[in-house]
Structure formats: C-alpha cells, structure tokens
Design a protein around this nucleic acid. Structure first.
Lengths: 223, 223
DNA sequence: AGAGATTATGGCACTCAGTACCCTCTGTAA
DNA sequence: TTACAGAGGGTACTGAGTGCCATAATCTCT
C-alpha cells in the first residue's frame, strides 16, 4: 500500500508537477482513502523520498557494526550506502533529482534528510574521537566534508542522466576527503612502529599544507 | 512595520510556542491586517529570521569585493559576518536558538538558510578555482567545512547562553579549517620563492596525514 | 467455529497557512 | 479638483495536515 501510494504520487508529480498535484489526486489514483495517505507519509514531500528512512537505518546499523575500523574510512563507506540506494534505480533517481531541483519545497525537504545523514556520521565520529581535542568540532567538519563530497559526485552523476560510473565518481570525491582528514581524525592512533623506513621531505617555507600532503602521498605512492 | 510584526511574532512564539501561535494572533497583537503579514514575510518561519536576507546580501557583497585575497581566508572572513550578526544581539540569538531547537519546522527552515550561505561561499570558491582540477568539488567541500566549523562554534556559544567570546571560538574553529585546506584550495598558487629556508621532516612510514600536517605546523610555529 | 480484541482503513469535520482579488485610504502631481 | 500610485486591509478560497469515530479485516484464545 505504501508502494502503491508512492508510485501513484510520483507518477502524478511527473505529469502535473508537485505543487499542482493534491493529496486527493494521489489517493484517488491509488484508489485509497485520503486519510490513509497521511498514515504512511507524514507529509506530501515524504512520498517523494520513500526509501530514505530505511537507508538511514541501514547507515546507523552499518556504523554500529563498524567496530574499530579507521573512523574516516568508516564514514566514507557509510556514505556509499546512500549512493548505492540511488544507483539501484537510476531512472527513478534521475527523475526525482529533476523534480527536486525545480520544487523549492522538495529542495528544503531534501536538506533535512541530508542533515540527518550528516548528524549520523558526525555522531559516530564524535563517539570515536571521544575526549580528543576539538573532537566534536572535528567530527562535524569531517562529516560535513564527507557529505559534501558524496553529494557533489552524486549530483553530477544525476545531472548526467545516470550515465557513467557513479561509484567511481564518489570514490574519487571521497578520496580527496580521506587524503585530507586522513586517519588522524579524532583520537590520533599512536604512530605505528616503523620498520626503519622514513620519509625525508623538503618543502619551501610557506608552501600550502595541501600541497605538502599531496607531495608526501605521491612520494609514498611511488615507492 | 516589518519590525513591529517581527517583534510581535517573536514575543508570541516565546509565550505560546511557534506552532500554537497563528498568524492571526500575530497580526492582532501588532494591530495590523492579516494580509499585511504576508506582504512582509512570505511565511510564518521568515518572521523568526528577519535579518538573514540582509546578512546574505552583505556576504555576497563582501565576497565580490574580496578581490584576490587568499580564497579560504576570504570565505572564513565571510562566515564571520554571520557570526557578528548573531553576536550583535546575544539575548535575541540565544532565545531564537532555543526556539529553533524545539520546532522541527524552524530547524528545517534554518537549514535552507544555511544552505544559501554555503552555496554563496561555494560559488565564490568555484570562481576562484576556475579550471583547477576538481575545482567545483573542492569548492563545495571547503564551503561545507567552513560552514560546519562556524556553526559548531556558534552553536556552542548559543548553548552556553551567549557567555564567553564567540569571536574567539569561531576563530579557533575556522583555524582548523584553514590549517587543513590552507592556501592550496583550488588553483594552487606557485610555491612562493623561498628565502632559502627549508623544512626537513622525518616521519614514520604510515603516519597519518593529519599528524604530519600538525608536526609541520608546530615546527613552523616554533621557529 | 465463534466471541472478543486488535489492527488497518475510510470518512468527516476542523484548523490554519498561504493566495487571489478587490477595496479603501493617503499622499502627490497636474 | 481629478488622476494616479502605492501601502494597507478585508473576504473568500484552496489545500495540507489532524483528531475523532465508524467500519472492515485479521488475529487470538477457548
């Protein structure tokens, strides 16, 4: 029944637009009572995102099971759960994206959903950084970075009409975040016992941090 | 008149709560017609944030005038404009914060406002990184980081009841972002001509990037 | 099977935000 | 004075969302 309603709603939204479709239109197409609509969806907007609630639960469960994995890696992997939900139905996702772009009410609704993902990630990071200096701050900033990177890649995939490899695009975007916030987010693990190998780096004074990191990483990669 | 309405609305929201206050209540306290309310505020929520529109315009103007300042510094300074708006009326800001925490509709509205700030910052960064590798992606991630850091500090100041130095808290939070995304965001400037001074760093293989950056910075700071 | 309880669904009436349309009042220019 | 413009006010309407109750389907226990 939930599915019937969501399908009827989405079809009508595509035909006449979101705002020019009333709840009465939806329930009459679905052949159910008006009251039932609000039993399954607290608002008209919810019918456009019928699967986010479950996805959020998946993400929460994933992070609870994440154990002692590297925290930034864990939240990046958690973000990929969302991507996979979109990628599972490319046509639907693309149509919904176009709809959302045009309807301010849906944009706002989507923001509130994204915020919940972000809070979930930040909460996990905060737990993992418990007690570290600026733990909560770092957790929120990293979560925001992960979400922004994920959404940037996701949206450009959606804008392209669902062509190309969404996973690869998101991997690349998240790669930048991981490079930057690396494995030191939160409780910095003790520097692992080196096997004697060291890096010697020479950089000009005033060189931007970002370049420094890149140079170190490429040096590590070339070995 | 706008001010009269906003004041009447806010007073009632504090007394009875946001949802239990109707627009009719507001206009009758303000002594104006119902229709006039919607002339000044497109929605009931807007009456709670009467100054964001102007603040957004200020931010846009600031960034337009920013010229060739270091981009990350510029967006951090732009974010401080928002802080100053809050800090200008601590009592009001704190009360509004408490109200917003409790009313889902206001939280959502606030998200849409925050998003507009973020888009403004990201747009500026994108223009400044024009053509750089992953320019748009970096711009969005940096903007999200700045907003998250700013909001984290702002909110903890608001939670404390407006005590303490908000500017200092935000400076510290933004400092972390600047350390991280440094002056390399976007079009990385040519490494400045060094005056012969170099840094030599030794780190264990596998050391987290974040620690590496910290060590370099503390070495720079100790000189 | 059948009484009783529980749950899903439908219907009705209501509140209230937001909008379209039109009216009045006030000030200004010719 | 008339012509006009623009700010404010009033009325009626649409449509989302809610509370309440009636009804049908399903489950449970004996």
């Amino acid at each position: 029944m939930r599915d019937v309603l969501a399908e009827a709603a989405f079809a009508l939204f595509l035909e006449r637009g979101f705002e020019r479709t009333t709840v009465d239109d939806i329930v009459s197409r679905a052949g159910v009572g008006r009251r039932s609509f609000f039993r399954y969806f607290p608002s008209k907007e919810d019918a456009v995102f019928p699967d986010h609630e479950r996805c959020l639960a998946d993400m929460t469960a994933f992070l609870e099971a994440a154990g002692d994995a590297e925290p930034v890696d864990a939240v990046c992997d958690a973000a990929r759960i969302v991507l996979r939900m979109y990628a599972a139905n490319p046509e639907f996702s693309v149509q919904r994206y176009r709809l959302t772009r045009e309807v301010p009410g849906l944009r706002t609704y989507e923001l509130s959903v994204v915020r919940r993902y972000e809070r979930t990630l930040a909460g996990y990071l905060e737990r993992r950084c418990d007690g570290a200096r600026d733990g909560a701050l770092r957790a929120e900033v990293i979560a925001a970075s992960v979400v922004a990177a994920h959404n940037n890649a996701l949206r450009s995939w959606l804008r392209s009409g669902g062509e190309g490899d969404a996973e690869a695009a998101v991997d690349h975007a998240l790669g930048i975040v991981r490079e930057t916030w690396g494995s030191g987010a939160g409780r910095p693990p003790a520097v692992p016992a080196a096997d004697g190998e060291v890096i010697v780096m020479v950089a000009a004074k005033g060189a931007p941090m970002w370049r420094v990191v890149q140079q170190i990483e490429s040096a590590l990669g070339e070995r």
